[in-house]
């Protein structure tokens, strides 16, 4: 794993939004992503987990430049993507793709499936002739387990699971190296989720695509990811191999989060000890000065409220917590 080349590197990336604080209060800043450093390697799946509002979707959108970062550098194959222009930017856009959560909103209802999958090829001028594109579309439909005669149908004729397959086929049309999957299965039924997960895993085995898998279903994230990053209030608090993180979480937030996963086993599930998490996630407009988790942390000390712990290597993982530094 360690020998693999780094595909995407985030260096101290921040994404802030400016919101109006109301009359007389002027403008205020929402720190959605605040100083995140991460690496995604070739051919791996990095799972990004955290509660809603922690900034995980914003981080994903920032990597593909759907949101512009306020500070920091995003390196894709060593090149800073925030400085790309013209042809280089077009190539970056071709090599990084995104699958969205809601397959009912991400497909144009007035285009046929064939047109939807062909559109990115046309935009990027791939596969020369119309006939070659048609053949590629058929091939892609088969890759995601749909039939070639679906090509002339419209999105409303498909179920949620089938639509998500269409979204996957569309992203694959450009032969990307990196796909950001933003909650791709949370709108689907349980029996359909496993179908989509298996398709994503098979495609990765065959083509070596890297995924950033954003989700709040912690069981499925563990299943698909090689490594996991845990995000809280715009910060990464712990990163490591997924087995390591799930077996022996170190950061108090990771511990609490993982202990809340419902276990599909009646005896283990009913006797599980959950680490209670008091209070609520603070507003990213007015985050705590010290550790982002200090307001809810059961082990918070004095310095946690004033200083911010940095993500630092601790054995087989990186974690940001003062209590673990001794």
């Amino acid at each position: 794993m360690d020998q693999q080349k780094v595909l995407v590197a985030l260096e101290d990336v921040s994404t802030y939004f400016t919101v109006s604080g109301g009359m007389l209060r002027g403008k205020r800043t929402v720190k959605a992503v605040d100083g995140v450093s991460l690496e995604i390697r070739e051919g791996e799946t990095l799972g990004l987990v955290g509660e809603s509002g922690c900034g995980k979707s914003t981080l994903g959108r920032t990597i593909v430049r759907l949101n512009e970062p306020t500070a920091g550098r995003i390196l894709f194959e060593g090149k800073d993507v925030t400085e790309l222009k013209g042809e280089a930017l077009a190539q970056f856009r071709r090599e990084t793709q995104m699958i969205f959560q809601d397959p009912y909103a991400s497909l144009d209802p007035r285009m046929t499936i064939g047109e939807i999958i062909r559109e990115p090829m046309v935009i990027h001028g791939l596969y020369g002739t119309e006939k070659q594109r048609e053949e590629k579309v058929v091939e892609l439909l088969q890759t995601v387990g749909l039939k070639p005669d679906h090509i002339r149908r419209y999105p409303h004729e498909f179920s949620g699971g089938q639509r998500q397959r269409i979204s996957i086929a569309r992203t694959l049309a450009l032969q990307p190296k990196f796909i950001i999957c933003d909650e791709p299965i949370s709108a689907l039924d349980v029996s359909i989720q496993a179908q989509i997960i298996n398709i994503l895993k098979r495609i990765q085995r065959e083509t070596g695509i890297a995924y950033l898998f954003i989700a709040h279903d912690l069981s499925m994230v563990k299943h698909i990811s090689h490594r996991i990053a845990v995000m809280y209030l715009g910060h990464i608090v712990e990163v490591g191999e997924s087995d390591t993180i799930y077996r022996t979480p170190m950061h108090p937030y990771t511990k609490a989060l993982l202990s809340a996963i419902p276990i599909p086993d009646p005896i283990r599930g009913k006797n599980r000890h959950r680490i209670p998490l008091g209070g609520e996630i603070p507003s990213p407009i007015d985050p705590p000065a010290g550790c982002p988790f200090c307001t809810r942390c059961p082990d918070a000390e004095e310095r946690c409220f004033t200083q911010r712990p940095q993500l630092s290597q601790r054995g087989d993982r990186a974690v940001a917590c003062f209590a673990l530094e001794e």
């Binding site: 179920s159 699971g161 089938q162 039924d189 349980v190 029996s191 359909i192 989720q193 496993a194 179908q195 997960i197 298996n198 912690l218 069981s219 499925m220 563990k222 299943h223 799930y246 993982l258 996963i261 276990i263 599909p264 086993d265 283990r268």
Partner: peptide
Amino acid sequence: KGLLSCICNPEEDDRELTPIPGSP
């Protein structure tokens, strides 16, 4: 049986998920 084989238990070792083919 199909439902139980297409979910994963985070406390157990990873196994391949067996999805139920088709749709309802």
